[in-house]
């Protein structure tokens, strides 16, 4: 729920960036303008969702896996140093 609330906060920032970049690319490459515009907007949604997750402190399964990977790597190095 908190993540969703932050998403709505960040969506303005990223969506605005996505629209501006998409419009600019659309002017530069008119034939692919529509699809580039759409991709930039989708990228904006994705980035806003990502940042909202960071802000809300929620962690996905892949975050937990990465944490375990980091922890075990550090543990191995500490053991090796202290041996």
């Amino acid at each position: 729920m908190l993540k969703l609330a932050w998403f709505f906060v960040y969506i303005f920032k990223y969506l605005l960036g996505g629209i501006l970049l998409g419009a600019l690319l659309g002017v530069i490459f008119p034939p692919a303008g529509g699809i580039l515009f759409l991709l930039c907007i989708l990228g904006g949604f994705s980035a806003a969702w990502e940042e909202a997750g960071n802000r809300a402190g929620s962690s996905s399964a892949s975050d937990v896996d990465a944490e375990i990977e980091g922890f075990e790597e550090a543990l191995r190095k500490a053991r090796r140093n202290l041996m």
Binding site: G43, A47, N54, D63, A66, I68, E69, G70, F71, A78
Partner: peptide
């Protein structure tokens, strides 16, 4: 960069894992 968010989140997770180990130690 922000668009490389999968890799960024992974790096963030690994850093947190290292920090958990350091404070655990």
């Amino acid at each position: 960069k922000a668009w490389n968010f999968v890799e960024k989140r992974r790096a963030l997770g690994i850093t947190r894992g290292y920090l958990i180990m350091q404070y655990g130690f």
